[in-house]
């Protein structure tokens, strides 16, 4: 096993045959309940008019963003971004507010809508199979893929490989590696022969989405303190003014 500094996947939409082996593999490996999944297919299916048809699919799971919005949003810090890639979720602190689901631009985190308070309702999402990748195995979904549409490796190397593949077949691929820069970069990289939006991927800026809200959050305490100071000053000022003018302003107007 080569040394992987930053765990990542590369998905090649030209290779995926929508066989769903990856999904079955994930369900088994991670004991996912029968009515849930961490990985699914997105895409428009068959488009066009007979006999001029196209079909493309993409396998969708957590992008393991470099600047995860789920993590930024979660009030109780249930998400962690490991320095070497994986974004993980800790059910022990989750309060079930589902803000992470709103925050994730990829609609990845899922929630136990079918669980009462005795079972406990949690968020679930792809974990990057830490039990496998830290034991020298590929993630279950990647390992099983019969067409190598899913590959796993070091992020830098995969980005290189993706660009090489595009360069080798410029006619086949769209000249872009999705996830290299989107949302500040993701650890799930995608190359494709059809526009990425046809694969269900959102158009995202290169700056992380959460930059704006995080900036606002940074301003909160300073703002609160200054606002408090202003209000105190006003209070003191008004009181002093009233004293000076003998009576309360209110009573004057009465």
């Amino acid at each position: 096993m080569t040394d992987i500094k930053h765990h990542a996947y590369l998905f090649d939409a030209t290779r995926c045959i929508d066989c769903r082996a990856c999904m079955v593999a994930c369900s088994v490996e991670n004991n996912i309940e029968m009515d849930k999944t961490r990985i699914w297919v997105a895409g428009l299916g068959v488009t066009g008019e007979y006999p001029n048809l196209q079909r493309s699919t993409m396998v969708y799971h957590c992008m393991h963003c470099e600047h995860p919005d789920c993590m930024s949003a979660c009030p109780v810090g249930a998400y962690t971004k490991a320095p070497d890639g994986p974004v993980s979720y800790n059910p022990d602190v989750c309060i079930g507010c589902r803000y992470c689901m709103n925050a994730c631009p990829f609609g990845v985190p899922h929630f136990d809508y079918d669980k009462g308070i005795i079972d406990g309702a949690f968020i679930d999402k792809c974990t990057f199979c830490p039990q496998r990748i830290y034991n020298g195995q590929e993630p279950a979904c990647v390992q099983t893929c019969p067409t190598d549409a899913l590959e796993y490796g070091d992020r830098d190397e995969l980005i290189k490989r993706a660009h090489e593949r595009i360069a080798a077949h410029p006619d086949r691929y769209i000249n872009h590696v999705y996830g290299e820069h989107e949302n500040g970069g993701t650890s799930y990289l995608i190359i494709s022969h059809v526009p990425f939006k046809d694969l269900g991927l959102p158009e995202l800026p290169e700056t992380p989405i959460n930059e704006v809200s995080e900036k606002v959050m940074e301003m909160t305490i300073p703002f609160a303190l200054s606002w408090g100071a202003v209000l105190t000053a006003v209070t003191v000022g008004v009181a002093a003014y009233e004293k000076k003018n003998g009576k309360g302003k209110a009573e004057q107007t009465k």
Partner: peptide, 15 residues
């Protein structure tokens, strides 16, 4: 767990 917000703080979270 609503009170967890009091003890587990993620300072980037608007929520």
């Amino acid at each position: 767990r609503i009170w967890y917000m009091m003890i587990h703080w993620n300072h980037t979270s608007v929520l």
